[in-house]
């Protein structure tokens, strides 16, 4: 086990402080700002979980809604008979299992097939759930009534985000993380140096999917009424990709940089220009792809490197002279 560098310790302490500070929010406001914070935290968790897999591999997954919906359904189906924490674990297992099956089937394929497949996956799962419910049960909408208030959901999502971060950091330090970076750079090279690329990708896809499933499970009590159409909403998948790309997926903390302004911006548009929501969404997607291909963090990194080289350039000419 490598020991921690001083820089890592400082970042770690800073991170813990930031999370502790965020956790105090419900003590200050239980109204609108808490609601906004729940949405931000939800997407922070989803985008970071998404980046765990899609960041290093560069495989764009549109399956977020499928995992999220499964987590939601795990809670909705058994909320009256089993304790909530157990159901959250169920959600993680179900989503992880789905990710495993899908991963095994598709991750041997290259990029674009994977994107198309994941896009269809949420729809496929939704239809299966609908069919199963219509065939085996007599009611379709499921009610999730619990005593959990908005602040509890906020704390759970915040804790989930912290765990995702920790997991991401541990993966980065592990052999798996190293393997992923090589795969991301050049999959053929990775295979030639003896990395089991398929297995590595599947493992990471499962981890990422399970976290998204947990997020769905946590959100089920917030919706109250679970239907296939709302649980497997394809919009979730697209929003996650947009926000993660806005932030940048090269760094673990990249997506958060995208999530916070994006959620606030969407909220602003909802209030001011509610009739132009879909247009605003499409334009922002285009703007991100064209103007910020590596996200905000990528742009920052670029600027930082430029700044560094400019600073070192004059000094090197001096020594030469």
């Amino acid at each position: 086990m490598n020991s921690l560098s001083q820089k890592e310790i400082i970042i770690g302490i800073g991170g813990v402080l930031a999370f502790a500070l965020a956790a105090c929010l419900p003590l200050v406001d239980q109204g609108y700002y808490l609601s906004l914070a729940v949405n931000i935290t939800l997407y922070a968790a989803l985008c970071t979980a998404w980046t765990l897999f899609s960041g290093p591999t560069h495989y764009v997954s549109l399956a977020t809604a499928a995992f999220f919906g499964l987590g939601t359904y795990a809670v909705a189906l058994w909320v009256d008979v089993l304790p909530f924490p157990l159901l959250v674990a169920f959600g993680a297992l179900a989503a992880g299992a789905l990710a495993g099956i899908v991963g095994a089937a598709t991750l041997r394929l290259s990029g674009v097939y994977f994107v198309i497949f994941t896009l269809g996956l949420a729809e496929l799962v939704r239809q299966i759930v609908t069919w199963a419910q219509a065939t085996f049960t007599t009611r379709m909408g499921l009610y999730v009534f619990t005593d959990l208030r908005e602040m509890h959901i906020f704390w759970m999502l915040l804790a989930l985000t912290a765990v995702i971060f920790l997991t991401g950091w541990l993966i980065n330090r592990s052999r798996l993380g190293f393997a992923m970076r090589i795969i991301g750079d050049d999959e053929t090279v990775a295979r030639h140096v003896g990395i089991d690329t398929a297995k590595s990708k599947i493992v990471l896809f499962i981890i990422s999917g399970a976290f998204i499933g947990i997020a769905g499970a946590i959100c089920a009590p917030r919706y109250g009424y679970i239907q296939p159409t709302s649980a497997f909403n394809p919009m979730t998948s697209f929003l996650v990709v947009i926000m993660a790309l806005l932030g940048g997926t090269r760094k673990l903390w990249g997506p958060i940089v995208g999530v916070i302004p994006f959620v606030i911006l969407m909220d602003f548009i909802t209030v001011r220009f509610s009739n132009y929501m879909p247009v605003a969404m499409g334009l922002s997607f285009l703007a991100i792809v064209f103007l910020l291909p590596n996200g905000v963090t990528g742009r920052l990194e670029q600027a930082w490197n430029k700044f560094q080289s400019r600073k070192s350039a004059p000094s090197s000419t001096e020594t030469a002279a």
Binding site: D29, Q30, G31, Y32, L34, S35, L36, N39, L42, E150, R222, Y223, G224, Y225, S230, N233, M235, D267, T270, V271, S274, N275, M277
Partner: peptide, 21 residues
């Protein structure tokens, strides 16, 4: 008036905004 975009998340947020802001 606010648009909830047929999305329960946004709807909850709108109610919160109406009530507390």
């Amino acid at each position: 008036e606010y648009d909830d975009q047929t999305n329960p998340e946004i709807a909850i947020q709108n109610i919160q905004r109406l009530a507390t802001i």
